[in-house]
Amino acid sequence: MTTAVLALQGAFAEHESRLKELGETVIELRDSDDCALAFDRLILPGGESTVQSKLLKERGMDTLLRRKIEEGMPTFGTCAGMILLAQHVDNGQGGDTQSGALATFPACVRRNAYGRQLGSFHTVDTFADMQVPMTFIRAPYLDSVEDSVSVLSRVDGNIVAARWKNQLVTAFHPEVDSDTSVHEYFLRM
């Protein structure tokens, strides 16, 4: 099976490294032509969600990827990737919300919920009944989710990982730690 990683900006190389450690075939998506390649899964990495959203639209990738996700392709969004997937995004400006570039995950995400770069932190906590390292970098969290969403992890009471149908989201960056448990969970989806 082949996993595609959105390679417009952000931590895509780190995801590719983890996948290759697990023996996966990996391709990069950089423009709309790449979306026509054969792949079975999709990872949307952390980085700058605003930049990624803009590039997805400019390169005509947003509609193509949204269709694949809605048709059931297993998709994993980390940090900025979680923001791209969210149906509602709270920018922390008086309750004003918008939708993520792909808007396929029924939840509201709060951008930069833990503050700026200085608010970044590392912890070990439970994800889907496993203890995993969690690195949060200018991280969001899920403010609210629809009832059909399975919450997989909370840190300090905040939802930092969840699954809905074929979609997995994490506020933390499993790709920057050597533990591959979260990627293995995704590959089993």
Rank of each mutant, 00 (worst) to 15 (best):
T2H: 04
T2R: 10
T3I: 13
T3C: 12
A4G: 09
A7P: 02
L8W: 10
L8R: 13
L8V: 13
Q9C: 11
G10F: 05
A11N: 15
A13Q: 15
A13V: 13
A13Y: 15
E16V: 12
E16M: 11
S17M: 05
S17T: 08
K20E: 10
K20N: 03
E21V: 14
L22N: 10
L22P: 12
G23R: 06
V26W: 05
R30D: 12
R30F: 10
S32I: 07
S32Y: 03
D33T: 08
A36W: 06
F39Q: 01
G47R: 03
S49G: 09
S49I: 11
T50F: 01
S53M: 09
L55A: 07
R59C: 05
G60R: 06
T63Y: 02
K68P: 02
I69Y: 00
E70F: 01
E70C: 02
E71D: 10
E71P: 00
M73A: 00
P74C: 03
G77Y: 07
G77R: 09
G77W: 08
T78D: 00
C79Q: 07
C79Y: 11
A80C: 07
G81N: 02
G81T: 03
A86Q: 02
V89C: 08
V89K: 07
V89E: 04
N91P: 01
Q93A: 13
G95E: 14
G95A: 14
A107G: 07
C108P: 02
V109Y: 00
V109M: 00
R111M: 09
R111K: 15
N112Y: 06
N112D: 06
A113K: 10
Y114P: 06
S120Y: 05
H122C: 13
T126A: 03
F127Q: 11
A128R: 03
M134H: 10
F136C: 11
F136K: 08
F136A: 13
A139W: 14
A139V: 14
A139D: 12
Y141F: 14
L142D: 04
L142A: 09
S144I: 03
D147P: 15
S148G: 06
S148E: 14
V151I: 13
L152K: 11
S153Y: 14
R154I: 02
R154D: 00
R154C: 13
N158M: 12
N158H: 15
V160T: 15
A161E: 13
R163P: 01
W164A: 05
N166W: 04
L168V: 06
V169D: 04
P174E: 13
E175C: 06
V176S: 08
V176P: 07
V176R: 08
D177E: 07
T180K: 11
S181D: 04
S181L: 08
V182A: 05
H183V: 00
E184R: 15
M189I: 08
